[in-house]
């Protein structure tokens, strides 16, 4: 069948829209099943609300927390920290990763260090961060920065070193100088790895954030969980856990996945899974 190019693209977009709708439904269905089981099991076994809350009480807690503005305040505080820490981490990690990736000797020397610190990234830094920065904003930003920095720098370095030499040679033979090589070749060439690094790093940062907020602050989602525990408010704890999980899914699905799709999938640098 003969199809005009524009038509083909449009039908592909429509198909993708349908597909993402079906995908969303398939993604949400198991979570709804889980909620249904929860709604049945808690009254059935008459579970003590100090051990685990009912669906209804969590919903009430949600309405109350939204109503008095506390939930938005906690979410806002957590998002600000994770946003700022990630921004700083990426800002420092990408140029450094590229600089190191350009030299094989430097990258070979630093790779083990980066892998070591990638594993350490996040929670393990909390105790020493509170010693250095005190309890509060600084310590938490430091923990998130750490979680993001090492993973992104390592992935950037990896990304730069996997750009084929022929592509760098091609740029040089077309007249690209150092700066053009950086902006036109190394940065876009490493982008698939950078995005992977940011996704992984943000995942670490999100977990690190919750842990750090339990210890080092008086506002944020981690703090909300931790304080509720002192009053046996299991419905607030579970609400917080749900919010943490759902927020992460939104960050990943609405921010990182579309970024990946818009750039590197189009370029054919990663296969769609």
């Amino acid at each position: 069948m003969l199809v005009a190019p524009g038509q083909k693209v449009r039908s592909r977009v429509a198909w993708r829209g349908m597909n993402s709708l079906v995908g969303a439904a398939l993604f949400v269905a198991p979570l709804l099943v889980l909620v249904a089981i929860w709604a049945i099991v808690v009254p059935l076994f008459n579970v003590n609300p100090r051990i685990f809350p009912s669906v209804g009480s969590v919903a009430e807690a949600a309405v109350a927390a939204i109503g008095d503005g506390s939930l938005i305040r906690h979410i806002g505080a957590s998002m600000l920290r994770v946003g700022l820490g990630t921004f700083l981490g990426v800002l420092v990690a990408v140029p450094l990763g590229i600089a190191m990736g350009v030299s094989p000797a430097v990258s070979a020397f630093l790779t083990p260090l980066f892998r070591f610190f990638s594993v350490l990234a996040g929670i393990a830094w909390i105790p020493i961060a509170t010693l250095w920065f005190g309890y509060g904003f600084g310590a938490i930003i430091f923990v998130i920065f750490n979680a993001v920095f090492f993973v992104v720098a390592y992935n950037t370095l990896l990304g730069v070193s996997t750009i084929p030499m022929t592509i760098r040679n091609a740029a040089a033979s077309l007249g690209a100088g150092r700066w053009a090589l950086l902006t036109e070749v190394l940065l876009p060439g490493a982008l698939p790895n950078i995005v992977t690094g940011v996704r992984t790093g943000l995942g670490f940062a999100w977990r690190g954030l919750i842990a750090a907020e339990m210890i080092a602050t008086n506002v944020g989602l981690g703090y909300m969980l931790f304080v509720a525990r002192d009053f046996y408010r299991t419905e607030v704890i579970v609400l917080g856990m749900i919010v943490i999980g759902v927020l992460w899914l939104f960050i990943d699905r609405l921010l990182l996945v579309p970024l990946e799709r818009a750039t590197i999938e189009r370029w054919g640098l990663v296969r769609r899974t």
Partner: peptide, 19 residues
Amino acid sequence: KGPGPDRGVVFQSFALFPW
């Protein structure tokens, strides 16, 4: 002295910029 735009190169592996 090093690569330069006075010599255009066509590579076996094409070496196009994918991005």
